[in-house]
Design a protein around this nucleic acid. Structure first.
Length: 812
RNA sequence: GCGGCGGUGGAGGAACGGCAGACUCGAUGCACUCAAAAUGCAUUGCCCGAAAGGGCGUGUGGGUUCGAAUCCCACCCGCCGCACCA
């Protein structure tokens, strides 16, 4: 046995140099006869250096990319950087260093590490979203959306983070705190830019059916869109002479509406009653955060307005209230209250002693169940589901209501009062209003400023010379928009740019794009299940409507990988339990790190990092390398792996078994852990059998075949070692070899072990020829002494035979 | 509260109607060594037993089945998402 040691550092450097020099992983946009496959990991945000989560996504994606290439596909596997964003800007505020400088330093780090991991990236398509060559097109797309009315400005109650001093999208202000820094958000009335994503609510919801995504992600998107079908109904208020429309999902319960409630923010509340009591209530509601208001166990509060509205179905005058359990943002900001069939209304009615009138026979109140109608005039006796449609129809005939659909989804607030983002390419002209920057003047370059600190307005407002410009429409004086775009805008179309990354006349060529899109396999963390994925889908649909591309959904398949934890906890600097990929790769090499991270658990699952575990995988790779060196020496070098007959020796059978196992694990599921385990088993068998195989030409050919197969199968996970060993044994480049096929004839053994049960309990295992018929199998099993002992003369009432596997005798 | 995912040896996990615990870590023993490391080999679910062998075992309780970790019902625990959305 050779005394040399497995030296990942040398091996990995060798192959990385070769792949870079030969640009091995570049793929041309010229189609050929191969089917295409677009494999993409979510765009990394470059900050410091890559962490262990990055190592995991790229280990998953790269394994897939390699497997698909060798399975005869044309694979696009690109890389880029999500370079704009708050962390770089906050760093700039703290240190004075330009965000561009720190960002580009991080990008250099990321690029360097990705290369050292040996990921098969087409580097010719690389870009970062802060480069003018990229954001020029971000602006161009913005203008197309603006022309379509899909980007617009409006005054709105928005989430404001007092710490970051910027507005946030609804999606970024979860539970009333800033998603980024955890500061409670304030609500401010500001004029802001929005994308009209709500126009796409139905399509974003319905098209989820066309996509192969994890069920929980689909569910999260569905909940986020929150479509509910019902009706809008008018309630007349004679005092003001106004009709109030309310949205309800239960028009069938209209006869049970015994009061009416408005949100405190509803503009008419004080017009209806401006008594001090009402004013106080409205003011105190405004002071409370949405979170406090939404608190679960909280008792219902409210104030009577002393006015009534008319219930349109029965003409009853019902009292009006203001209460903070009604939200201004949802529906119309006013509701009809049906205490018998809505838990919240029920609670409120109890508290204020209001009438609770059952209109559906459906069990104990409050009840949302179905049943026959009661107390509902001519609808009595009808099932409530039928009454639903009939009541809406009846109201529609009178002009007092109609079918309606409501969504939880809000328009996407995209403007940010921050520096480090893509400038919004719009001018403000006193005479012409909002004027788009002409296409030929793009990009609107982000100017340098002195002071990055936000002061409630964008730092760009301080760049006076940049702000002042000429209106392209009237030639008069105009001012540039000083807000920048949310970075989610940048990442909503980057996957399109990869298809034609060097195009300087258009964001992409439509036919070129059409040849790659959609992304066949998208890979990333669940944390983007709502925001990024929803925005990217919206952009894709809007761009399709603009006749710029031909797909409706950007990501045909989605895989969400689990987190890597340590000691059961999320890695974080504050916990001090962070392990960086570099720390692992230095002692063990990238191949060990990549294999370990895939081996530790199924990749969709969270997995706990163990330092000893990496050592185990490293040992396995060393074993493969050592046996390869030994086999190469003792069997006469790289003479080729030919000459292996249809031998059914254990090594041959194991090799073919491993081929079959790894292939299905990679093709049909993301079972990298069991795929790697199969290769480990193959190598273990080679160690067990090798001494008996040396010495005969056939035995040595089998050993070479076994080792070459192990190298070939481990290559998607450990590309450097796979290449090295394969070259050592065969003299060829493994990535140029087609993915191996398992020979079914070699998979089958001549004998099988059959489990024998009596009453479902295992009693014996017997060897028999694989060719044994069911009858022979049963006979052989029945003759087993152990079986006889357990049958013990009793009557066999039934025999179950599973060919080649099992016999079960049922005795009484 | 609603929805989703999960609960298997000392640890990560495998099997997903047919031999529970593949593979790895850890542990123990042996070989090599002056010694250690490295490496190789063996053992390693629990209980009874000297052994042969037997019993018990996949969160709990029921059910379906010749046969259940796997399917069904109820419950317990953990994690994630949503949550006064009319």
């Amino acid at each position: 046995m050779s005394t040399e040691r497995y030296d990942p550092r040398a091996i990995e450097a060798k192959w990385q140099r070769l792949w870079a020099a030969e640009r091995t992983w570049e793929v041309s946009n010229e189609p050929d006869e191969r089917p295409k496959s677009y494999v993409l990991e979510m765009l990394p945000y470059p900050s410091g250096e890559p962490h262990i989560g990055h190592l995991k996504v790229y280990s998953v994606g790269d394994a897939l990319a390699h497997f698909r290439r060798r399975s005869g596909m044309r694979v696009l596997h690109p890389m880029g950087y999500d370079a704009f964003g708050l962390p770089a800007e906050n760093h700039a505020i703290a240190t004075g260093q330009h965000p561009r400088a720190s960002t580009e330093a991080s990008i250099a780090q990321f690029r360097e590490q990705f290369r050292s991991w040996g990921i098969s990236i087409d580097w010719s398509r690389e870009f970062a979203t802060h480069e003018p060559e990229y954001y020029r097109w971000t602006q161009w797309i913005f203008l197309r959306l603006f022309e379509r009315g899909l980007a617009y400005r409006k005054q709105a109650a928005v989430n404001w983070c007092p710490k970051d001093e910027t507005v946030l999208a609804n999606e970024q202000a979860k539970d009333g705190v800033c998603e980024r820094c955890g500061t409670p958000v304030e609500i401010r009335q500001l004029e802001q830019w929005f994308f009209k994503i709500t126009d796409y609510a139905d399509r974003l919801l319905d098209d989820l059916a066309t996509v192969d995504w994890p069920e929980h992600v689909v569910t999260m998107q569905r909940n986020w869109i929150g479509r509910s079908r019902g009706a809008e109904v008018s309630f007349r208020c004679e005092a003001l002479g106004t009709d109030y429309r309310v949205f309800t999902t239960r028009p069938d319960t209209l006869f049970g509406a015994t009061f009416f409630v408005m949100a405190p923010e509803h503009p008419d509340v004080l017009r209806l009653n401006d008594a001090p009591e009402v004013r106080d209530y409205v003011n105190s509601a405004a002071r409370e955060s949405n979170e406090e208001r939404g608190d679960e166990g909280r008792e219902k509060t409210g104030v009577a307005l002393g006015q009534t509205v008319t219930n349109p179905v029965n003409g009853e005058q019902i009292p009006m209230f203001v209460a903070d359990y009604v939200l201004m943002e949802y529906g119309t900001g006013a509701i009809m209250a049906v205490p018998a069939h809505d838990e919240r209304d029920f609670e409120f009615a109890r508290r204020f002693g209001l009438e609770i009138r059952r209109v559906v026979e459906s069990g104990e109140l409050p009840s949302t169940g179905d049943g026959p109608m009661v107390n509902s005039g001519r609808f009595d006796g009808l099932h409530n589901r039928e009454a639903f449609a009939q009541i809406v129809e009846w109201l529609a005939g009178d002009g007092k209501g109609e079918q309606a659909v409501n969504y939880r989804l809000r328009d996407w607030l995209l403007s940010r009062q921050r520096y480090w983002g893509c400038p919004i390419p719009i001018l403000h002209c006193d005479r012409c209003g909002l004027v788009p920057v002409p296409d030929d003047q793009l990009p609107v370059a982000l100017p340098d400023v002195e002071d990055y600190a936000p002061k409630g307005r964008s730092p760009l407002a301080g760049a006076e010379e940049w702000v002042r410009t000429e209106c392209p429409s009237c030639g008069g004086e105009a001012r540039r928009e000083t807000d920048t775009m949310d970075t989610f805008v940048d990442s909503s179309w980057y996957f399109l740019r990869y298809c034609d990354a060097r195009n300087d006349r258009a964001p992409w060529d439509r036919a070129t794009l059409g040849a790659w899109m959609p992304v066949d396999q998208y890979i990333g963390g669940v944390e983007h299940a709502i925001l990024h994925l929803m925005y990217a889908r919206f952009f894709t649909k809007a761009l399709a409507d603009l006749d710029l591309l031909d797909v409706q959904e950007p990501f045909a398949n989605l895989f969400t990988q689990g987190m890597i934890t340590r000691d059961g906890a999320k890695m974080s600097k504050s916990r001090g339990n962070v392990i960086s990929p570099r720390e692992v790769i230095e002692p063990y090499g990238a191949d060990s790190a990549r294999c370990y991270i895939l081996y530790i658990a199924p990749p969709a699952q969270d997995a706990d990092w163990s330092d000893e575990g990496v050592g185990g995988i490293h040992r396995f790779l060393s074993r493969l390398w050592r046996v390869a060196v030994e086999v190469a020496e003792r069997s006469g070098g790289a003479a080729g792996a030919g000459g292996v007959g249809a031998s059914r020796s254990p090594v041959m059978r194991k090799a073919h078994w491993a081929i079959a196992k790894v292939t299905t694990d990679l093709r049909e599921r993301f079972a990298f852990n069991t795929a790697i385990a199969a290769v480990i088993e193959l190598v273990n068998d080679i160690y067990r059998e090798k001494e008996s195989l040396y010495g005969s030409p056939e035995g040595e050919a089998e050993l070479r075949f076994g080792v070459a197969t192990a190298a070939s199968l481990i290559f998607p996970f450990a590309p450097h070692l796979g290449s090295e060993v394969y070259e050592l044994i065969t003299g060829r480049r493994v990535w140029e070899e087609p993915w191996p096929d398992a020979d079914p004839a070699l998979l089958a053994s001549t004998t099988v072990e059959v489990a024998v049960q009596v009453n479902g309990k295992l009693r014996d295992r017997i060897q028999m020829p694989a060719s044994a018929s069911q009858g022979e199998q049963e006979r052989l099993a029945r003759d087993s002494e152990k079986v006889l002992a357990h049958v013990n003369g009793a009557e066999i009432v039934k025999t179950v035979v599973v060919p080649g596997k099992l016999v079960n005798f049922v005795v009484r």
